[in-house]
Write a protein that binds this DNA or RNA. Structure first.
Length: 217
DNA sequence: ATCCCGAGGG
DNA sequence: CCCTCTGGAT
């Protein structure tokens, strides 16, 4: 099956399974979402949400966080892991908002990538979830899902983003990112994928390859 | 390519 | 014990 047809079927079914889901990172505004996204790198969202509850009470805006004591921030976010780098990043990110972007979160990919700790994945989360722009959010779940299905063959997130973006209508991109993410979390698990519960099993390359190899035994 | 790093699950 | 978790910077 060609990728245009495959992607159309996959989009339709995953959007039906997880209709217009939003990020699981708790936040009240774009500043908070930006900080939460920086903290979420290689960390479960549940861990991030525990930490941000305290963090945002102590530092409710970019100004207070930009002036924060580094060690206090490290202590507050310790349980998310990578706490030294992340503490440095979120303080510098808050400072960048004040110095370069007039205190608010910028709305373009180019500007978002100037913020310490934000890469393409984090920038796309902000673009999609905060500003309603079309975003392909390639995190560990999304990448695994689209590679297994056969929508991309690349391990490079930037290439996966570009390939999948070309396959999916702009209006569906952000919703599909979240749907594929949830599909990866709860069904297309990294270690023991639950293919019997999967809504795209019949068109999935990984599933057919898996059965082929078990037939050989 | 390597480092950052804690927490939870199997 | 090993693997994984919404990666990013050097």
């Amino acid at each position: 099956m060609n990728r245009d047809l495959l992607s159309a079927m996959v989009v339709e079914r995953l959007l039906q399974a997880w209709p217009k889901a939003e990020t699981l990172l708790r936040h009240d505004n774009c500043y908070q979402l930006m900080i939460a996204v920086i903290l979420s790198s290689r960390t479960t969202d549940a861990q991030v949400n525990v930490v941000t509850e305290k963090l945002f009470r102590r530092f409710p805006d970019a100004k207070s966080l930009a002036e924060a004591d580094g060690e206090e921030v490290e202590d507050l976010i310790h349980s998310v892991g990578f706490y030294r780098v992340k503490a440095r990043h979120i303080v510098a990110a808050a400072a960048a908002l004040l110095e370069k972007f007039d205190g608010s979160v910028p709305e373009s990919m180019e500007e978002l990538l100037m913020i310490p700790g934000l890469g393409r994945k984090g920038a796309n989360v902000v673009l999609g979830d905060c500003f309603g722009k079309p975003a392909i959010i390639v995190d560990t779940h999304f990448g695994r899902v689209v590679r297994r299905i056969g929508l991309s063959d690349s391990e490079n997130p930037a290439i996966v983003e570009r390939e999948v973006k070309s396959l999916i209508p702009s209006a569906d991109q952000t919703d599909f990112s979240m749907a594929a993410n949830l599909h990866g979390r709860y069904v297309c698990l990294s270690r023991n994928p639950r293919c019997s519960e999967c809504v795209v099993q019949d068109v999935c390359r990984y599933f057919s390859d898996r059965n082929r190899s078990s037939d050989d035994r």
